[in-house]
Design a protein around this nucleic acid. Structure first.
Length: 673
RNA sequence: GGGCGAGUAGCUCAAUCGGAUAGAGCACCGGCCUUCUAAGCCGGGGGUUGUGGGUUCGAUUCCCGCCUCGCCCA
């Protein structure tokens, strides 16, 4: 409703501007007033026009208001302050519309997009940083789907990289295991109910130390690492077989961990196939043909295929810049800042392989993966890349828009890939390539000490300490989830001894997931999360459980009223809500309706800015306004039957929008809690 | 050395394209459970938005300098 009325207002205003001043701006700024007494929409446009028209803003605002006339759904317009135009909705009519209208209807419906998230190196357990990535990605997928887009969810697996090589070195050189021994080890771990990813967590930390431990052996050990990496990349040997075995087992564990938080994937593209299916060769041809890559014959990058770095535009430099640059470069000197794509020894860098992979994502490579079934969810299938796959598989790749959920440290390589696409002439694709960047999750020094890690004095003085898989320093995802469930379970046991063991377990899990997902979503993306158990295990205030609790309250009302939210909304057609919504004394109730009406607007904003935190905030604010309303207006004891109907509808609309918003955040609302 | 991000209440964070009295949560203090679930509600204190300039009707927001922290590249 809110978005629809905003558009109606906008188009009426454009007509008025054209009529009065013969101007046609591209877009009008429509704001939400800071206080309800200013109405529902605020228009600062008179300020902008003041200079152009050489008139006082207030005068312009008055002229516009006079020319507006009645607009359907609006109660009126007024000039406020130095020249704001405030628009007021007809509250009664709005409430009726909100009751029947779920809205949405956003641009971009039908678009085929691809979201890549999680992408954990399959060599150790997932930690809190990975959780932030996956929760952000999964939530964004839900948002895009809510807006009507067709979304493929991909989890890229670097199964032939240096991190997997490190684990293989650990198994073969520290543990001195053969391929057969590794198989036996995995069987034993499974039998003992131990998690392979946890085993690797410790082993990875040990290997990282082992490389550095002995100064005399350092070079030899680094060579072991490199040889192992090459053997894995090459494939067809025991080393590669061990890597395949262990990385696949760890990958399965990651999928299980993420499934605990209701996250599913459609496809797991792996680096091994990108290598073995020679994606790079095709990309290399395109890049050479279009002159994106050139062979450097001078300087430190001599013998490499390099690419001009993003930010260095091909546009001509301004004269003084050109002169300066020429002087500095002494005429013909090579671009030392260029990004190396193929090293002088012929190996391809990570960015090179990534360019090839992204050409595939947009359907521009001219080659496809094979696909095999890998992991079965209750209601759908997750596929994995393969050299030769099963004949019948869904189509992947060829997306119109892509989103890569990758932390902000990868901004530079991501920019290079976009630059390459642009250089190849794929401008449209480059425009629809979003590096969905986010900051890391770090631990507070307090948290690190609590976990028993040694923390230097220097680190203790910092606000946060970066998580490091290499040092085995961090909070494992499953440990955190276990801890959360334990805490919610204790609370549910105490509050609902009448429920069965199983019921209490389900509720505890729902609350734990709600707490964790909300915790990761309430921060905007470029804010570092300094993780602390105290905050993450909190169920009060701005948390998931607070919002879930508001829904539980509405459920309880409808149970006792022996009706449903749906029927309460359906009956709104017979209720004249105007008397219950008009006047300052009813602003609180109107706030609930108004906030509820904004869900689609928030969905739109979240997608446009790739920022799920706004929706998290919206759900919290709606829950707050409902809680306020709940305390103030006792529904079940309301004597006036018409007013009671209206109050029930208020609870119903709050419930509908809370459940919807929570659903997009990947959070369910229990029946009781 | 170059690039990116950040600096807002005691703490953790918001603040839409530059907009009306800079808002939440936590913590602290004081109230509210014989009425729909107190994982809640109400009230209170708490701010030179790192710093110095500039742009203008108006700056947490934009521009320039400086300081501090983090990350990336070399």
């Amino acid at each position: 409703m809110y978005l629809k009325q905003q558009k109606a207002l906008s188009s009426r205003l454009l007509a008025v501007l054209s009529e009065l001043y013969q101007i046609a701006p591209d877009a009008l700024a429509i704001e939400q007033p800071p206080e309800i007494k200013f109405g529902e929409y605020a228009l600062p446009l008179a300020f902008e026009l003041a200079r152009k028209l050489r008139k006082a803003p207030r005068k312009i605002a008055e002229e516009i208001v006079a020319a507006l006339g009645p607009v359907e759904g609006f109660a009126g317009f007024e000039v406020a302050g130095a020249g704001y135009i405030n628009a007021r909705l007809d509250r009664g009519a709005a409430a009726k519309a909100i009751a029947v209208d779920g809205e949405i209807a956003l641009e971009g419906a039908g678009l085929h997009s691809l979201v890549e998230h999680t992408s954990i190196n399959p060599n150790k357990a997932a930690h809190v940083g990975h959780l932030r990535n996956a929760i952000l990605g999964d939530t964004f997928v839900r948002l895009l789907r809510a807006a009507g887009q067709k979304v493929d969810v991909q989890n890229y697996i670097d199964n032939t990289g240096v991190q997997v090589a490190d684990i293989v070195v650990g198994l073969t050189h520290l543990e001195k295991l053969s391929l057969g021994d590794v198989q036996a080890l995995m069987a034993r771990l499974a039998l003992e109910g131990r998690r392979i990813d946890y085993y690797c967590w410790d082993l990875y930390a040990r290997v990282s130390q082992w490389y550095e431990a002995d100064e005399a052996e350092k070079a030899a050990r680094k060579k072991v690492r490199l040889d192992t990496l090459h053997a894995i990349e090459h494939g067809g040997n025991d080393t590669a077989a061990i890597a395949e075995l262990i990385s696949t087992a760890v990958l399965r564990r990651h999928l299980e961990t993420m499934l605990r938080l209701d996250m599913e994937y459609d496809l797991l593209p792996r680096e091994s196939e990108i290598l073995h299916l020679h994606f790079w060769d095709l990309a290399f041809e395109q890049l050479k043909d279009k002159g994106v890559l050139y062979y450097e014959t001078e300087g430190k990058n001599k013998g490499c295929w390099v690419m001009q770095r993003a930010g260095r535009t091909a546009e001509p430099l301004r004269e003084e810049e050109a002169l300066e640059s020429e002087a500095a470069n002494n005429g013909q000197a090579p671009d030392e800042d260029a990004k190396v794509i193929v090293r002088s020894n012929g190996t391809v860098t990570y960015v090179g392989k990534d360019i090839a992979y992204h050409l595939w994502k947009f359907g521009l490579l001219g080659r496809d993966f094979g696909y095999r079934r890998f992991f079965t969810y209750p209601d759908h299938q997750c596929w994995i890349s393969a050299e030769s796959g099963e004949p019948d598989h869904p189509n992947f790749g060829g997306a119109q828009a892509i989103y890569n959920v990758i932390d902000s440290r990868q901004a530079d390589p991501q920019a290079n890939v976009i630059q390459a696409l642009r250089g190849l002439g794929y401008t449209e694709q480059a425009e629809h390539y979003t590096h969905f960047s986010y900051e890391m999750v770090a631990l507070t020094p307090r948290c690190a000490l609590d976990l028993g890690y040694e923390v230097s004095e220097e680190d203790q003085a910092r606000p946060y300490i970066e998580v490091s898989g290499r040092k085995g320093f961090g909070v494992k995802a499953d440990d955190l989830i276990d801890k959360l469930i334990e805490a919610t379970r204790a609370e549910v046991d105490q509050r609902h001894p009448e429920l069965s063991e199983e019921e209490r377990g389900v509720i505890a899990k729902e609350i734990a997931v709600g707490a964790l997902r909300y915790f990761m979503l309430k921060y905007t993306r470029n804010s570092v999360i300094a993780f602390d158990f105290k905050d993450a295990l909190s169920f009060e205030g701005e948390t998931g459980p607070y919002i879930q609790y508001a829904v539980v309250r509405t459920r309880s009302i409808f149970r006792k009223a022996e009706t449903t939210a749906e029927s309460a909304l359906a009956r709104m057609t017979d209720v004249d809500a105007t008397p219950y919504l008009t006047g300052e004394e009813n602003d609180g109730i109107w706030q609930v309706w108004l906030r509820a009406a904004k869900t689609s607007l928030l969905l739109d904003q979240c997608i446009a800015t790739a920022e799920p935190a706004y929706l998290a905030k919206h759900a919290f604010q709606l829950a707050q306004e409902f809680s306020n309303f709940y305390r103030k207006h006792h529904i079940l004891t309301e004597a006036d039957p018409a007013r009671k109907q209206f109050l029930l509808a208020t609870a119903a609309v709050a419930q509908r929008e809370l459940i919807r918003s929570l659903g997009w955040l990947g959070i369910s609302a229990p029946e009781v809690m």
